[in-house]
Design a protein around this nucleic acid. Structure first.
Lengths: 216, 216
DNA sequence: CGAGGTTATCGACTCAGAGTCGAAAACTAG
DNA sequence: CTAGTTTTCGACTCTGAGTCGATAACCTCG
């Protein structure tokens, strides 16, 4: 049971890591998680373990990634691990224990076990879903301006995105809507931005791509 | 450990099922699979179990789907199951044991446990990958005409596909190439079709969708 | 209160992926 | 050689999406 928890902080995508106090990999960083209890759902288990790290209500989205089973992944013991992807919206600052902190995914410290690979898998999943679902709701704050949303998508995708396209696409998909408010920016002035919000905060995938011709 | 093995037979997508001889769900159909041995990789395990059902060399593609963990999924015992998706190319007719046979996914008999849900998940995965990868290689025979490939995609997707678009898209992606041969059709005559093959028989996803603007 | 600076938004243009349709090509059977 | 059958191709269109420059709306300072 492992969780890859992402949040955009300081304009970059970060992942929640935990410093190991015991061997093996003492002092290295690893993903939060723990053992599965008998009779427990995988999802319930990961939520239980996460509760010791962050307030679970702050995790806006959680989904299963995959199960890793290489016998070599844990030196000494044979241990499977099912990893979950969790997303925390921008702006929240969860209380985390002293041995736990956020690390930019682009500058990861040495990770224990195969956790680097698992973080990569999480990021891949996130990148994919950003393009064909409304999963942005789980990374963005409740309401936001287009500039803010553009920054969030840019951080998560790892490249600059165009605000014009982002708006057009998300609006047409019906993923976001204007609240009607406007919000002034910094002390520098400038035209106040329109405020948007996600229409729904549940995962919805946009037409899974009816290629080669949908049924007319 | 379960496997959802698909093959296009008789122009429809079918899944390999196994008739249970023991309780629970005696007489119902279930997905092939079995227990994981200590120290074994999930993939090795599913291959080992599949070997008793079909010749493993006939499975052209195998990938992990997900792990199911609901405590209610198995009456009596608490049992997790990791399911894999396996694909067998058209035209092969594997020897299967007497208690095992193929069923059209659109007319499934009553399935044991949560296996219906798992088959659905497999089909969803397949549908998705057909649109943004070359996964067709694992369902199509070594070489084929466009009409044949169109039928395979149609069966797997569940709706009619346009041969024109299929060809253009797969050619541009570099997924298929012409062999140079041509193949006459039935006794009715008609223009002989060009023969194609997949360029590679390894999974390749087409540009994971650089939406909202790729880095220029 | 207006000028200049700043930021957000919009519209018009373009390009590429992809669906439609009908005509042309290449064969078989009589 | 003609009629029938099947595949393939080309031209048109539609829509999603990237680019760019113009415009709108606000600030602060003189």
């Amino acid at each position: 049971m492992l969780a890859v928890v992402f949040q955009v902080r300081k304009r970059v995508l970060q992942v929640l890591l935990w410093e190991r106090a015991r061997e093996p990999f003492r002092g290295a960083w690893s993903l939060p998680g723990g053992a599965l209890e008998p009779g427990e759902t995988l999802e319930a288990s990961i939520l239980r373990h996460l509760a010791t790290k962050v307030d679970v209500r702050e995790v806006a989205h959680l989904e299963q990634l995959a199960t890793w089973s290489d016998p070599e992944r844990h030196p000494g013991r044979w241990e499977l691990a099912t990893a979950y992807l969790g997303l925390v919206p921008l702006g929240i600052d969860p209380d985390v224990p002293a041995d736990t902190c956020w690390h930019p995914v682009d500058e990861l410290p040495p990770l224990a076990f195969d956790h680097r690979e698992i973080v990569e898998a999480g990021r891949e999943r996130l990148r994919g879903k950003l393009s064909y679902s409304n999963i942005g709701f789980a990374l963005a704050p409740e309401t936001f301006t287009l500039a803010e949303l553009t920054a969030v998508y840019g951080a998560a995708l790892g490249y600059e995105v165009s605000a014009t396209n982002l708006k057009r696409v998300l609006l047409r998909r019906g993923a976001i809507e204007a609240t009607g408010e406007r919000r002034a920016h910094g002390p520098a002035g400038g035209r106040p931005a329109e405020v948007f919000r996600f229409r729904t905060r549940r995962l919805e995938v946009t037409d899974p791509f009816a290629v080669f011709r949908p049924p007319h």
